[in-house]
Design a protein around this nucleic acid. Structure first.
Lengths: 80, 80
DNA sequence: CTCGAATTTAAGTTTGACTTAAACTCATAC
DNA sequence: GTATGAGTTTAAGTCAAACTTAAATTCGAG
């Protein structure tokens, strides 16, 4: 997956624990952990908005893309 | 919703029509239209990756956040 | 060993991404 | 005034997966 979650860096910069953030934005620690480690395949804008709000950042600081020609393939090749 | 879709600007800069992009990334014109006009509440990273791929851009160029204290509210106030 | 933060797995709920299809607007062109 | 092409909208449907709760586990620090 060419989408990488770079939330970790922002968290570190803000010196906040995942637990604190999870509590403040009202998502479960479980899900935030999955999100942080790139184990989810999408995100709701409501969640993204809360993250950006609490972390005072832009979506682009949490999500990055690195070019991968496989992204355009109709069917995914196993990469996991 | 404090998340804004700024895909339009990138499209214009690339001089591509929505139709072309939809065809290249394999999503329906319908959905791309909904996405462009901010009528969806989330996005799959696979779709985001395809957009970034074809438009040669970062997620941050397609999605922006403007601070809104209401984002942290547990329940949404109707704004639609 | 204990405590707190984080991760993982598993099972469940609920939302909504995304589709197809069809009708409609709004241009530009013939 | 009608055809053509891009875009929008609505509506109905499928189905993946976002997100939850709970519990067990790891890991680092005291």
């Amino acid at each position: 997956m060419a989408i990488r979650i770079t939330l970790d860096e922002v968290l570190a910069a803000r010196q906040m624990t995942a637990k604190q953030v999870a509590a403040r934005i009202g998502v479960s620690e479980t899900h935030l952990s999955l999100f942080r480690t790139g184990k989810v395949r999408g995100v709701r804008f409501s969640t993204l908005a809360k993250l950006c709000n609490v972390l005072d950042c832009q979506p682009g600081e949490l999500i990055a893309y690195s070019f991968d020609p496989a992204d355009l393939e109709t069917s995914e090749s196993g990469d996991d």
